[in-house]
Design a protein around this nucleic acid. Sequence first.
DNA 1: CATGAATGAGACTTCATTCAT
DNA 2: CATGAATGAAGTCTCATTCAT
Lengths: 190, 190, 190, 190
Amino acid sequence: MKPKDPEKEQVIYSATLQLVRQNGLTGLTMAELSKVAKLGMGTIYVYFKSKEELINSLFKRLKRLNTSRIYASLDEKAPFAICLQQLYENYLRNRVRFYEEHFFIEQCVHSHFLDQEAVQLDLSAFQNLHELLNRGKTELLVKNIQNELLIAHLMGSANEIANLALKSGQELSQTWIDQAFVLCWDSIRR
Amino acid sequence: MKPKDPEKEQVIYSATLQLVRQNGLTGLTMAELSKVAKLGMGTIYVYFKSKEELINSLFKRLKRLNTSRIYASLDEKAPFAICLQQLYENYLRNRVRFYEEHFFIEQCVHSHFLDQEAVQLDLSAFQNLHELLNRGKTELLVKNIQNELLIAHLMGSANEIANLALKSGQELSQTWIDQAFVLCWDSIRR
Amino acid sequence: MKPKDPEKEQVIYSATLQLVRQNGLTGLTMAELSKVAKLGMGTIYVYFKSKEELINSLFKRLKRLNTSRIYASLDEKAPFAICLQQLYENYLRNRVRFYEEHFFIEQCVHSHFLDQEAVQLDLSAFQNLHELLNRGKTELLVKNIQNELLIAHLMGSANEIANLALKSGQELSQTWIDQAFVLCWDSIRR
Amino acid sequence: MKPKDPEKEQVIYSATLQLVRQNGLTGLTMAELSKVAKLGMGTIYVYFKSKEELINSLFKRLKRLNTSRIYASLDEKAPFAICLQQLYENYLRNRVRFYEEHFFIEQCVHSHFLDQEAVQLDLSAFQNLHELLNRGKTELLVKNIQNELLIAHLMGSANEIANLALKSGQELSQTWIDQAFVLCWDSIRR
DNA sequence: CATGAATGAGACTTCATTCAT
DNA sequence: CATGAATGAAGTCTCATTCAT
């Protein structure tokens, strides 16, 4: 798939996100997508060979994008707790800010659309966190519990808290973020 | 007169759970459902007037069932920490044991099938936890953070941990549960 | 079909008329029919071997009933014009009074439900009128036009006028009937 | 870009008329329609969003078409009786010639498919006749009876006579038409 | 490449009829 | 004989994908 026009690809992605937010992944139809994207139905099939490929492709792109966003501004030389806090705040802010994208991701995760590669990517997104936790353990700052459990705990918490923030419609205040981080920090610290 | 068979409803529910586990909520078709339930297509419609009603009806039933399961054996006169631990363990065990049901519930929550009453029921399921946390605050055992945040934290964590347990395929060892509870307890304790 | 209970047959007929008036012949379902008739669905099939037979049976019954009603009080020894007038008035009054029955009949005629016998009956209902017109011709009172044409003219007119009377909701005033008859009389008189 | 083919609409209309003539409106199925029209099932839904819309759309089209056909060649400056005769003859010939269309219309009128607009159109089709009768009254040529009654009489007669002509299979001879007109004319003349 | 009309498999749902009670 | 739950063929409509322009 070598798109001649990379802008069209982006237009399709954007239209997809918009429609999935509005109607859910189930409610996404190629006809409406082409209408919102202002492209012919056939054009979409030039860039993506099927609806499934479109969804998987967008999913992977968003996962990578989000991973890089979250870890981008991270100062790995800072003390462990600072690192974790930055990461946590980044994650929460990112989730709320790019709500549409995460809604799409969540819909995908609960669907049967994802191919193996996409599922892999979903799982491997925690690699950096994994390593950070190892460092925390080395520095005797983190409980000696297997990382999988810690990650499930932290991520589950963070996601639900982000959803709560969105649901309540309020801005993501610093106070709120700080409180949320205290919960996470107190739970894993030694 | 052949009375409407109350067991048939259960047969339909069971077949629905099985099929949703296999193919996801999107993959659920009335034709396959009737095949698995070993009933005529029309019979399903004797018991449920539409696919949507079937899904909502089962959803509500499961939510109520699970709430009662979780809070059933709870000794409310025990000390706060014991109560919370019991609740936590109940929740985790219940989620793993009735995996199929929770998978169905999760699929529903992320779909556009649920009617308002079902959504209400989903939200109100935390009422008991809400009150328990209030007690913890009164006893100065729990951090002074609004319950919504605490609940999002605890539930998000618990759900993700349950998913992890299922994914890893292993039994839910007591050690594991205890570790998981420590995380939760340390996070919210004062 | 030897019904044990002739009253049940009548109950089914009445329920049919009521439902066809409400929902049209197309909207008639056996389930609703049994509900309105307060009988089990199977019971209806004791009295009528199919929906089609029920419709045809009721149709024939009503055609016969109406023919006898219309010609019942006719004094054949009266002068021709009086006879015709009586007949006309009978017909109009009968149609308006037993509106439900005629609505059913009209729905049947335009459907594909009627069997050959029923169609025959529908056509042969004009036999008496046929003979009366012959008498009129013999007495040199009626135009020398073939009866089929005269009958089509008279019946088409009468039916449409009856429909008009029903549509306008008003009672069928004597003035109105008289006016309508003048139209018919003037048209066929020599 | 393949433009939406305007001929396809006509093809669908024609197939509809053919099938309704053969099987009645009730017997019309979208599957058979698409087969006769030699189009994919979905194609019908490109041109009409539902079966109901197709029927209403065709109904309105035919009503308008017939009205214009009947009144097209009418010379309104001719004497009243000539006008009426022309109109009558037009109507009869039109009904017999476009038998299929009128069969469809009649099936629609007795169904529950028509929307309000279609019913309106059906009723308003007599506007021209209404005005012509007023002229006849002004010229003291027509009985002083309310138009509704006159119209019901004339239309009921004409329709039934047209049906008779069709049923008998014979051509619509001029003699026959003339006889039929005499009946109508004698009935309403002063 | 771009387009969107055309396609038809397959989804949900209805309802006349049967049959076990 | 009475019942109404059970049945499944058949109907309407959707939508991912193709293909002629």
